[in-house]
Design a protein around this nucleic acid. Structure first.
Length: 435
RNA sequence: GUGGCCGUAGCUCAGUUGGCUAGAGCGCCGGGUUGUGGUCCCGGAGGUCGGGGGUUCGAAACCCCUCGGUCACCCCA
């Protein structure tokens, strides 16, 4: 028997309803924020991703690389920003370019809870804007998405990586400090410091942490421009009522980040994989790829982790979705082909309708109707047909009597009946939602 | 790449020092109701015991190898 490859997984109904709901809510929110959908290839030339940084684990050891029959060196998308920037540089749309995406991401690593070789990310990017308002906007977009889903135990961490003027001085100070302590902390520590001292900042090793407590702080080495930008971002978030914590050691995984970085963490998840979304500014990436200077910011959200966080909070991921079930299940006791026509009519009228196949017994069809979750069963029988009526029963009412409706009025009747049914909850602000 | 734990029916699991035809619950299919679900009753289908090799009169069980799952480390979504 074949199984999905290591680290990949299938998403099936009914669990896929939560997946679908998350995507739908993000898409709607992105639309309201003025973002258009961008769809880029699943694979790119390897160099596109190598631009995100030679010292990042994603590039060093997690790329799904392959060579095609033409000898081209390609790689499956390990992160979402590089392809979007590549598309921007290639097509040169007018700025600000505001786009969102839904895309599978690939990283060759050992799977565990909340970490997969293929996972899905929702993301948004704003290219060509250096105004801190853009930072605030994309953060608000992500923040609102979590709130839409009813996630409560989410914290927003923000930091500034500094800019071209302030970063080198800080890096020098940090490196000098860390190398002073390197002899006591071993080769791995030293290696990382030499490759990219920033990558040491978020290390979890207690011994390293102790040293880091005395390390020069990023937020105290910001130049005037970077400091003003970061202050404006914080002011904007506050104005929108979005709570956040400054996290001076938040550095994130990619080398391209500059200035603002942020991460959403779920306290309902184990600390190892508690990041349910994150991003930041990448003001020089477009230029690195051969485009014009294009200050930009964006983020990615891992759908699987969001769903795990929802489950961990005990929130009903399905209710966040509340995808409408079937309006009607048609039971065919006549076997004269009318069922095909009736189901067709209902569907064309905008109702959700289904039926059984394979000439099953009436009893079996009723069981299927019940299990389908449909609101109503529509009974087609030969005797009733002679009088021009169909039977209707409310499957959600335990003691419901079956009533009769003229065949000609079936669509109108169901439309009316389902219209008064409470629809999906309009969760403007569910209980426990993050603020 | 390293380490822990785990592989028996579609799912969750039981299976005693190695010993009858490998079981249960749920799910699925059919019947009880010759045209009526959800409750109840009856019946049925479904298993190369992850795979290969070995030990033994005899292996789901013991040994070796292998594949897979899962969790953790590094790091990330």
């Amino acid at each position: 028997m074949y199984r999905a490859p290591v680290g990949t997984h299938d998403v099936l109904p009914p669990e896929s309803a939560a997946w679908q709901a998350a995507v739908a809510r993000f898409a709607d929110r992105a639309r309201r924020f003025g973002y258009g959908l961008v769809v880029t290839p699943v694979f790119e030339h390897r160099e596109v991703f190598q631009r995100v940084g030679a010292s990042t684990d994603v590039v060093r050891k997690e790329m799904y690389e392959f060579t095609d029959k033409g000898g081209r060196a390609l790689a499956l998308r390990p992160e979402g920003t590089a392809p979007v920037v590549r598309a921007f540089v290639q097509h040169r749309p007018a700025v600000p370019w505001k786009v969102w995406y839904l895309a599978p991401h690939f990283r060759y690593e050992r799977p565990q809870k909340g970490r997969y070789r293929q996972h899905w990310q929702l993301g948004a990017e704003v290219l060509g804007v250096d105004d801190p308002e853009a930072d605030v906007e994309v953060i608000a977009l992500a923040h609102g998405f979590y709130r839409d889903l009813g996630l409560g135990r989410v914290r927003l961490l923000v930091n500034s990586m500094g800019d071209a003027e302030s970063r080198p001085a800080y890096l020098a100070a940090l490196r000098a400090y860390l190398l002073d302590h390197a002899p006591a902390l071993g080769d791995e520590f030293r290696e990382r410091v030499e490759q990219n001292p920033l990558r040491v900042l978020d290390a979890k090793t207690p011994a390293w942490q102790a040293v880091l407590d005395g390390a020069p702080r990023l937020d105290q080495h910001l130049g005037p421009a970077a400091r003003d930008h970061f202050a404006a971002v914080q002011a904007g978030l506050t104005a929108l009522g979005i709570g956040f914590e400054c996290a001076p050691r938040l550095v994130r995984g990619f080398d391209y980040y500059t200035s603002t970085t942020f991460e959403f963490v779920s306290d309902a998840l184990d600390a190892a994989q508690n990041a349910i979304g994150g991003g930041g500014r990448y003001d020089r990436l477009a230029e690195d790829m051969g485009g014009p200077p294009t200050p930009s910011i964006g983020f990615g959200i891992g759908i699987e982790r969001v769903l795990i966080a929802l489950a961990a909070e005990g929130a009903d991921a399905g209710s966040a979705a509340a995808l409408p079930a079937l309006d009607a299940f048609v039971v065919d006791a006549a076997g004269d082909g009318v069922a095909t026509v009736v189901v067709g009519e209902l569907r064309e009228a905008g109702l959700a309708a289904d039926r059984a196949y394979g000439g099953r017994s009436v009893k079996a069809q009723w069981k299927l109707a019940d299990r389908s979750g449909a609101r109503y069963a529509v009974m087609l029988g030969a005797r009733a047909a002679e009088r021009g009526v169909v039977g209707i029963k409310d499957l959600r009412a335990p003691d419901a009597e079956q009533s009769e409706v003229p065949r000609a009025e079936l669509v109108a009747w169901l439309r009316r009946a389902t219209a008064i049914t409470p629809g999906p909850p309009t969760t403007d602000r569910p209980p426990g939602a993050i603020t």
